[in-house]
Design a protein around this nucleic acid. Structure first.
Lengths: 343, 343
DNA sequence: ATGAAAGCGCTAACAA
DNA sequence: TTGTTAGCGCTTTCAT
């Protein structure tokens, strides 16, 4: 059965299109009798207003675009889930795009969409974009006054709303916690050294070490993207260096570190404490379960969506930009040994 | 800077809107000189055609809706990733909705969208929908002749395209493999007994047992949704029953089973073999890594998208419906002990 | 080679 | 209370 239009209803019922439109929108101008007649006919023929025509007219689509580096990453999945939740509640649909860390995909997506197809953007910069340091496509969005909210991986030169965590502070907290429970030689392992957030975490780690009189030792920092190479390096470090704990600043690093430790026959946490970052399924289900600093993915997504929609609906002035910092939390589980609790 | 329209260009250049339209579409009717003038002006003022107006006119949105039970499930994330890949390649955007296994959310989503907002649906039935056995909302979509492709969790009464795996056969294969490598007492653990796919897998398991002369023993089947209860039951089973292997028909079941086995001090795979289903991050990163029957999530998504878009673009007749069965594969890893290889 | 006009489906200001 | 008309931004026939 073909979809029916307002025009066809008007013809069938011998009234004008505007009468039909008003009746269907329950306008006070139309008599109850006419309304009833029209409603009945509409219902019978399963009338559904064409959303494109509405959008064109109202100049708003109720669609928002969401750019995600990778949906296979649990942290981003949680963020997207949070975004979708709020969007649905507030009557918006989300168009999702996975950049797979490609600058080109990111640019293409934005260019394709920045033409009235959506009411706003929620995005996380791809790794390549960050490395290339090319952000003109986002600048264009801002210039066009299309609402834009960046999350997690942001850029200081982009004057728009942001929802992030404090990576430096969180890493600082995590490192300090390890010292608190008695660790003396805290190593660091990272598979995300190419990301600004990764660098921030290293910064926080170093800061904490210095603050409490420890020295930063290059030999106790393994920062590699390749899993095999990283495991090899961690193994070497564990064998050659004096290390009683490891701060793995991303989930992959944590899992790999745990595997190396197991393969070396280390008892976790007695022989070695491990602190993870971000609370994914892997961290939760490892043996032992990982102690981590958790970033609330869902919350990040929700806040980003709230902010964006507030902007879209004019509840917040388009020029009023803010950076929202979502709190992180330490979850103590099985990979850290609490010798005592200092300070 | 506000976005510019074709009308404004026409005014500025003192030509008609149709001339501008044709010029921008590189029509042969327009002189090169005029085209150049118009193109230049358009470029200078960053003209972008309004996609809504185009959609309204062409009666196609280049948007497809994707319904996913939960994006936090790695298997579904892979499927969505596959869908997005194909959609992007073929110039379509995807609107994503997460039902969180809610019938109501599913119905609302479909009703909201079935009005020209999208060109087609790709969906996986929610658990609640399956249990309620209410599928009128999908029937309506089919009746409206809006292209629809169902994946993974489908329904026999829905006459539309489907992309699935053969759950019975795959479970049969997995069970038979365990027997092949020498297992005599194969138990089954499931956390998805509420799903039709779960029931199919149990069926395949039983079928294999019978086929090779084993008896189906209720005491060796644990089917519970709650993690705590399930672990307790599995533990009990492992202590009281004679079991040399376990077929965990979903990833959660596999992980929990592994945890119980560890807690009981079982050596895996020497004391107990475990076969998982679906190859998620957990299966890959467990210790030991799980032997699993893998379902190719990305492939499922890609095929679903290809089929849908072919339907949308009329490359396939709307009434020509098919069920595509994606092959599964056994990945042998660390949780199965190969005593020998029978048959 | 260019333009006028109709139409996609709908809303809304204005008229009757 | 109901209808006429213009317009959202664009494409496309049909004139010119």
């Amino acid at each position: 059965m073909k979809r029916i239009t307002i025009k066809e209803i008007s013809k069938a019922l011998n009234v004008s299109v505007s009468t039909v439109s008003k009746a269907l929108n329950d306008s006070y101008e139309i008599s109850e009798a006419t309304k009833e007649r029209i409603r009945e006919y509409a219902k019978k023929h399963k009338y559904r207003p064409n959303s494109l025509a509405l959008s064109l007219q109202k100049k708003q689509t109720k669609n928002i675009a969401v750019l995600v580096p990778s949906i296979l990453d649990y942290f981003f999945a949680k963020i997207l889930d949070g975004i979708e939740k709020v969007a649905t509640e507030r009557g918006y649909n989300i168009l999702t795009f996975f950049s797979h860390e490609s600058y080109e995909k990111e640019v293409n997506t934005i260019e394709m969409l920045n033409n009235g197809a959506i009411d706003g953007f929620i995005a996380c910069l791809s790794e390549e974009t960050l490395n290339l340091d090319k952000i003109d496509h986002f600048k264009q969005v801002i210039e066009d006054e299309v609402p834009l909210v960046l999350y997690d991986r942001v850029h200081k030169d982009l004057a728009c709303d942001k929802v992030v965590i404090d990576n430096v502070k969180t890493a600082y907290k995590a490192t300090r916690y390890l010292m608190k429970i008695g660790c003396e030689d805290i190593a660091l392992v990272s598979t995300i050294d190419g990301l600004n957030v990764g660098k921030f975490r290293v910064k926080g780690y170093k800061k904490a070490l210095k603050k409490y009189g420890h020295t930063v030792d290059k030999n106790k920092m393994v920062r590699l993207t390749d899993a095999k190479l990283l495991k090899k390096s961690v193994k070497k470090m564990l064998l050659e260096q004096n290390v009683d704990s490891i701060f793995a600043i991303d989930e992959t690093a944590a899992v790999l570190t745990l595997q190396v430790a197991h393969s070396l026959g280390k008892k976790i946490p007695q022989d070695l404490s491990i602190m993870g970052f971000s609370n994914g399924v892997l961290s939760e289900n490892s043996t032992p379960a990982l102690t981590v600093v958790n970033q609330h993915g869902a919350k990040i997504g929700e806040e980003a969506a709230i902010r964006l929609i507030d902007k879209i609906e004019g509840k917040v002035d388009i020029h009023d930009i803010s950076t929202q910092i979502i709190r992180t939390e330490l979850i103590e589980r099985g990979t850290t040994y609490r010798m005592y609790l200092k300070f």
